[in-house]
Computed example of a mutant assay.
Amino acid sequence: MDEFSFAQKQRLAYIDFKLYFTGMVTRSEIVSHFELGLAAATRDLKFYKDNAPENMAYDNVEKKYFITTQFKPIFKHDARRTLIKLANNISDGFDSIGDTSFPIESPSPLNVPDIDIIAKLSQAIINHKPISVIYTSLSSGSGARGLVPHSIVDNGLRWHLRAYDRKSKSFRDFVLTRITKVTILAQTSPPEEDKLEDHQWMRMVPLQIIPHPNNVKHPTAIKLDFGMEKGMLEVNVRAAMAGYLLRRWNVDCSESASLSGPEYQLYLQNIQTLYGAENLAIAPGYQHS
């Protein structure tokens, strides 16, 4: 790779990224992404093929290069940065931020998913394919699962997969770090396994969050923290994600704002909005009526 210019390496990294995380790349994508001519994009694909001949195969019918089973990335893809890229539709391929060191610290992650697992899941979701996984749960240990994934989600503490679970015949969350093997299946899924049938995912829940009426002495500080307007923060969140958000921010969800302690600085004013939402066992103070 040393013989290539920085700009060429960027384009080769883009090809590597597209193959790894979407399973395919086209000449027109390279032309559009880098504002190149067709001949230049063709050269880049040839350079990539010369450096990694087993990584991709061209399909004359679809006019696309597809990932092969022998694929091995020629660039390093950091798991945490890749998840952020995927969440923000960034596909530059490079993980380096250059020579500048920025004075910013982020919390140290306690768990980092495997990059190969992320790649297989991303490919399956983008290409609408079901998967077979080896998954280890707290209740039943390790075993094979048939899943139809539709989203990778950051719940604030860890990453998980939202998927239709063929074992329980329901849509559920699966922690990424507990998935140890992914096999993409060459089959189509019936309509009942489609994301549109995941009602908890499709339903948006409006949350009205205010400074805690009992635990906060100076509510103006909390209003400034969260950019509240007229003393309230309004957030629309997927029903499937509501419990995670409320737990992450320690939002008191009890009927009478009864939770005490300095960690409870926020209160959910419209508790009734949670009716019918799942995963609320983790919402602080919430009691099912």
Rank of each mutant, 00 (worst) to 15 (best):
D2A: 07
F4C: 02
F4S: 02
S5R: 12
S5M: 03
A7P: 04
Q10V: 08
R11K: 12
L12I: 14
A13D: 07
A13R: 10
D16I: 03
T22H: 07
R27T: 14
V31P: 02
H33F: 11
H33Q: 14
G37W: 05
G37C: 09
L38M: 09
L38N: 15
K46T: 15
K46E: 13
F47S: 12
N51C: 10
A52G: 06
N55Q: 08
M56K: 03
V61E: 09
K64E: 10
Y65T: 11
F66W: 14
T68F: 02
T69V: 08
F71H: 10
F75M: 02
F75Y: 15
K76H: 15
H77N: 06
D78V: 01
R80C: 06
L83F: 12
K85E: 10
L86V: 14
N89D: 12
D92A: 04
D92F: 03
D92G: 14
T100H: 02
T100M: 01
F102L: 15
I104E: 05
S106G: 04
D116M: 08
Q123K: 09
I126Y: 10
I134P: 00
L138S: 14
R145H: 11
L147I: 08
P149M: 04
H150E: 00
S151P: 01
Y164S: 04
D165K: 10
K167C: 01
S168N: 10
S170C: 05
R172F: 04
F174V: 06
L176V: 04
L176C: 03
T183I: 08
A186F: 08
P190T: 14
P191E: 09
E192L: 05
E193Q: 13
D198A: 02
Q200P: 02
V205W: 01
Q208C: 05
I209K: 00
N214Y: 08
V216S: 04
K217H: 11
P219V: 09
I222T: 15
D225W: 12
M228D: 10
E229V: 15
M232S: 09
L233H: 07
M241W: 05
G243C: 05
L245G: 06
R247C: 06
N250P: 01
L259W: 11
P262E: 13
E263Q: 15
Y275V: 11
G276P: 07
A277D: 06
A281K: 14
A281H: 13
Y286K: 01
H288E: 10
S289I: 12
S289D: 09
S289P: 15
